[in-house]
């Protein structure tokens, strides 16, 4: 499963920075002289960047630590289950996870537009985002040795 994503710092607006500066500052990294923020599913407090109503904000990434008793204890969901309507009872909202890079099994690869995500509320009304996945293409499997790949927007690996 795609473990982390990175977002170039210059894609984070001043408004988003003002709201999440503490969280983001701790996750700032440098790659080739440019700053980026990394969002890791294994983070103590995992978050994902999402585009909601055209604005960039952060949402909790899945439910790996079991913060919610009602939501599935994972950070990813299958495209198939989304299409089958298995999340319908939670009134889900499909969102874009803007990312410049994604990380899987030691490999950082370029994401051109973003990744599809599913936003659902937990029992307290907090927004929780699950990354939508599908079985890996042969290329992706060879590249990362992972059997699952995120559903990228407008591109295939």
């Amino acid at each position: 499963m795609c473990r982390a994503v990175a977002l170039a710092a210059d894609e984070v607006s001043a408004q988003t920075w003002a709201r999440w500066s503490n969280w983001l500052a701790a996750r700032r990294h440098d790659r080739g002289g440019e700053a980026e923020y990394r969002f890791d599913a294994w983070d103590r407090c995992p978050k994902l960047p999402i585009l909601r109503d055209g604005h960039l904000t952060l949402a909790r990434w899945g439910n790996l630590r079991g913060q919610s008793r009602h939501l599935p204890r994972t950070a990813w969901t299958w495209l198939r289950t989304v299409e089958q309507g298995s999340w319908r009872h939670l009134d889900p909202l499909e969102v874009v996870i803007p990312a410049t890079l994604a990380f899987e099994r030691g490999v950082w690869y370029r994401v051109r537009q973003g990744i599809r995500g599913l936003l659902v509320p937990d029992e307290r009304g907090w927004a929780v985002c699950y990354m939508i996945c599908q079985p890996s293409s042969h290329y992706y499997y060879v590249m990362t040795r992972s059997a699952h790949m995120p559903v990228l927007i407008g591109e295939t690996i």
Binding site: G32, G33, E34, R110, Y139, Y140, M143
Partner: peptide, 26 residues
């Protein structure tokens, strides 16, 4: 076509995704 890659360590993978067929100087 992607200025984001400028200055970064970049590797282009071959037909199967297994081998680096071109790499940046970084």
């Amino acid at each position: 076509r992607d200025r984001f890659l400028v200055g970064k360590a970049v590797g282009v993978l071959g037909n199967q995704g297994a081998c680096v067929i071109a790499k940046s100087y970084e």
